Every structure is written in structure tokens, then in C-alpha cells.
Simulated assay, not measured.
Amino acid sequence: MINFDLLNGKVEELKSQFLNAQPFEHVVIDNFCDENLLLEAVAAIPAVKEGEVNKSRDFIFAKNKFEKALFDDIHPNLKTLKRELLADEFKELLCKITGENIFIDPNFHGGGLHQGGKDSFLDMHVDFNYHPNEPSWFRNVNILLYLNKDWKKDYGGELKLLDGRVEDANLHLIEPLFNRAVIMFTRDYTLHGYAPIKFPDGEYRRSIAAYGYTQQDHEGVVRTTVWYPEKGGFLRKLLGKHMPRLVKLKSKLIGSGTSKNK
């Protein structure tokens, strides 16, 4: 499923692109999978039902975004994709590109199939930094594989990257093209998101998200997702800044809603 021959053949080039990318470390990889096998898998993805329990729990900072961790249930080719993402060969490839010791979360907590429906958006944010169920797992990278066949500029939904360390930093856009993967660091400055989409009715902004972790011998200072909304005024931005405290309190009281998105 994954084009390992292609990727292993240019691993040094990918490593250089990753380390030298702007606005922060990331790499864009086209033709990540066998195109025909991926097309078969995407054709089998059922339409989203608005009442399903796997709607994102990102409150006011996202709209019409759905998550399904058990994406491998949809089609045999996605089962193969999941197996290969968890395989030693992909682990070795990730380690070579990033220079970090990384493994993929086998349960795809918060990841799996992501689908954005009508007017979907995801505000700029930095991700949680430790796995909520595995306190010694440091979240090191995101791997995003886009599934948007025949995407057009008018549809919007480009991945937006911004360096939170730099005042008046330049925004970097990555088109969510079919069979394009993005591997990026997750740090307290690696802001990312996407603007409201204008996909045709019945079509969705789709991606497979896998999160790479590094095992540490100690528990670090936990940070939940921090939001940096670009619109909505002072109160919305203040809420985004303090959302980690609210989420931490909610999790203590009722547990993680994200864990329910199977």
C-alpha cells in the first residue's frame, strides 16, 4: 500500500527537506501510497451521518469535523495501510527522516479517518504533547495523508502552518491533494489548522491522521491542545488560550471524549 521503494529511495532527500523546511520542520510527500489501491479504499468510505458519536470534541474551534480511529474497518486496503503505518519499515523511515526515535500510536487516539463536512474548519492550534492514556509517550510528529481526489483551489481547506515563535510570521499553505502525505513536528510553536472549506455538497475534506510518539523515561509537563483562533474577537481568543485548563478539568470529571471516537 505505502510506496516504500519510492520513499526509501530518496530518504536522504526527504530528511533534508524536513530539517530545512519553513516555517518549521515538515516534509510533503506525493504518491505516498499505491494510487489505485488508495482510490479503491476512498470509494468505500461511507457518507458521514451528522448524528454519529464520532464528531470532533473541539468545541467552538472546529466545525463539522468527524473522526474515526477504527478506519481500517472500512476497507481491506485501509487495513493494509494501518498495518504498514505500524510496521517496523515505516518506523525506520520516520526515524531516518526526522532524526527522532518514533513509533505510531497503534490505537490512533484522536487520529484515523478525519472528515470535514459543509463549511468545516479547524482553528490554528498546537497539539497536546503527551498521550492522555500513556503519560510517558511524547507526541513527536503528525503524519497526515490526504484523500481528496480532484481537489480544486476554490474548495479551500489547505493545511496552514505558522511558527508561533515568530511575531508577524508568514503563513505557509499546503494543498490537501489526493495521495499527498505531510510529516510535521508537533511542538508548542507548530501552529496548524485549515480555513472554512467550500467543498461541493456531499463531498468531504478527508485525511488519514497518524500520530508518532517517542517513549520517554519520565513524565513531562502535560499540555493539552492550545487554540489560536484568527477570528472571533477577544473572548474567543482568551478561551482558546485557557482551553487546556478547562479540558483538564473536564477529563477528570467525565473522561476523554476523543477516546470514544472509534
Results as ranks from 00 to 15, higher is better:
A43C: 08
N261G: 01
K149T: 08
V48N: 06
G232H: 05
N8R: 13
L235S: 13
A169R: 02
M1W: 01
G9D: 07
A62G: 09
L81M: 03
G51H: 13
L37V: 07
L81G: 00
R236M: 12
E175V: 06
R180V: 05
I143K: 00
V226M: 02
S207N: 14
N8T: 09
A169S: 13
L191F: 07
F24K: 00
N129F: 01
G112A: 04
P176N: 07
D30H: 15
L159C: 11
E25V: 01
Q115A: 10
K15Q: 15
P46F: 09
V28E: 12
V42L: 08
Q17L: 14
N64S: 13
N20G: 04
L249H: 05
S120P: 00
K231H: 15
P76M: 09
I97P: 01
E40R: 11
D127V: 04
Y155C: 04
F103E: 10
K198A: 10
K82H: 03
T258L: 11
N101Y: 08
I143R: 02
W137T: 06
H218L: 12
I74T: 07
N64F: 03
R236C: 04
L235R: 10
L177D: 05
L238D: 07
E84R: 07
E134Y: 13
T214F: 06
L78A: 07
R57N: 15
G212W: 01
E50G: 10
T214G: 15
Y194I: 08
F185S: 11
F103W: 10
L7R: 05
I104W: 00
Q216R: 13
C33P: 03
Y204T: 07
G220T: 09
K160A: 13
F128Q: 05
D105G: 08
C95E: 12
A47D: 15
V247I: 12
V222R: 12
P106N: 14
L161W: 05
K250E: 14
Q17D: 12
Y204H: 09
N54D: 15
I102C: 03
N170I: 12
G255N: 04
G99M: 10
F178E: 09
L93E: 06
T225D: 06
Q22I: 07
G51P: 03
G116W: 00
N133E: 15
K65R: 14
D88A: 14
A195L: 09
G116M: 04
I2D: 01
H75T: 12
K65N: 11
A21T: 01
D127E: 13
P23V: 01
R223Q: 07
F32W: 04
M124R: 00
D73P: 00
Y213V: 07
L6A: 12
G220C: 11
K118L: 04
E219D: 10
K153P: 03
L238K: 15
M124E: 03
N101P: 02
R187Y: 08
E84Y: 02
E12N: 15
L14V: 04
H242W: 13
K262L: 11
I197G: 00
N107M: 11
S207L: 14
R139P: 05
A210V: 02
R245V: 10
K55A: 13
P135A: 09
S207R: 05
F61Q: 06
K237T: 05
L246R: 07
S259I: 09
N31E: 15
E67K: 12
F185P: 00
